[in-house]
């Protein structure tokens, strides 16, 4: 009945066109651009690997931005996943009002990426903002949330931690699928709660941990709105994540070639880490029906 091959292709043709025009062409294009000097006025000039050479050898802003990015991702992803799993584990219980809590935790992640929430953060954590007022009320000194390089990145991280809801909902769905008979059997054998968690829960939800990990990783490397609106990358470039540097290079300085080169370096880092995650997944991700469990 669905044997008309041409018709099938007709249905997916919008995707094929979109793929070629809005994904494949720009993908190849940015790679080529990264070997050029292009300022939108003069035609692109081929300069070989000059952009990359400058980036790695002389551009101190790049190294600063890269180290800040890695630090940010290294803080955000594990903290967010651990927190999401912890709360999901608590919610996975016969409690009244679970749905209410689930909603309360989920709302921030729905609003999270928006400019409005970044603006809210900027005012809450300002020098005279409500967070410092609360600290003052309990007798603590005000914290320079954005004024000090050490704190600023942490404040940005807090904004993303606040949005652990979507990862939590995915964890919760997985936890609810773990058969309770396994826990009962473990309790009869005298297992502690921690043993049950590490030996039963974690192995059974590794596919979801893997999924959340990769998604959060790819997202964290592309963080833009938070630092752009809250700190503008400062102070002293302490929150100048690579996406901000790419934006500034390409759309403020109109240095399309260098912006593309930066984008490709960021892309390469994301790709390599994702591939490592996939390659190692067969050692630590277990799927249902898998004999190694």
């Amino acid at each position: 009945m669905y044997e008309n091959r041409l018709l099938g292709f007709a249905y997916v043709s919008p995707f094929v066109v979109g793929l070629l025009v809005f994904t494949a062409f720009p993908f190849v294009g940015s790679f080529l651009l990264s070997f050029t000097d292009y300022n939108l006025i003069d035609p692109p000039a081929w300069i070989g690997a000059e952009n990359y050479a400058f980036m790695f050898e002389r551009d101190r802003v790049f190294w600063k931005s890269l180290s800040v990015t890695l630090l940010y991702v290294g803080m955000t992803v594990p903290l967010k996943l651990a927190f999401a799993l912890y709360i999901a584990q608590i919610l996975n219980f016969r409690l009244r009002g679970i749905n209410l809590f689930r909603t309360a935790y989920y709302v921030p992640s729905i609003l999270g990426g928006s400019v409005a929430v970044a603006v809210l953060w900027r005012y809450m954590f300002a020098d005279y903002g409500v967070v410092n007022l609360i600290l003052g009320a309990v007798g603590l000194d005000p914290v320079p949330w954005f004024g000090h390089p050490g704190w600023a990145l942490f404040t940005i991280t807090l904004l993303r931690l606040w949005q652990f809801g979507s990862a939590m909902v995915i964890f919760l769905a997985a936890l609810q699928n773990v058969p309770s008979s396994l826990y009962e059997a473990a309790m009869i054998d005298g297992a502690t709660k921690w043993q049950a968690f590490t030996r039963i829960t974690v192995p059974l939800i590794t596919p979801v941990i893997f999924f959340n990990f990769v998604m959060q990783l790819v997202q964290a490397f592309q963080e833009f709105n938070g630092p752009y609106i809250i700190t503008g990358g400062g102070p002293l470039k302490a929150t100048y994540l690579l996406p901000l540097y790419i934006y500034d290079s390409a759309f403020r300085d109109f240095d399309m070639g260098y912006g593309s080169a930066l984008a490709w370096v960021l892309f390469a880092i994301i790709m390599v880490l994702t591939l490592i995650a996939f390659a190692t997944s067969r050692y630590w991700v277990f799927y249902a029906g898998d004999k190694r469990v």
Binding site: Y2, E3, N4, R5, L6, L7, G8, F9, Y11, V12, F15, V16, L19, F22, T23, F25, P26, F27, G29, S30, L33, V214, V218, F221, Q222, P243, I246, A250, F251, M256, G259, S260, A263, W264, L266, F267, I270, T274
Partner: peptide, 30 residues
């Protein structure tokens, strides 16, 4: 629902683009 030549490859690409960071296509799109 349909079978057509190249479906497997196209579907694999579709999955691949799920993980493709937007940052790498943005400048040429502009």
């Amino acid at each position: 629902r349909f079978d057509f030549p190249g479906k497997r490859i196209l579907f694999a690409i579709l999955i691949g683009t799920l993980l493709l960071p937007n940052v790498v296509t943005r400048i040429p799109q502009y």
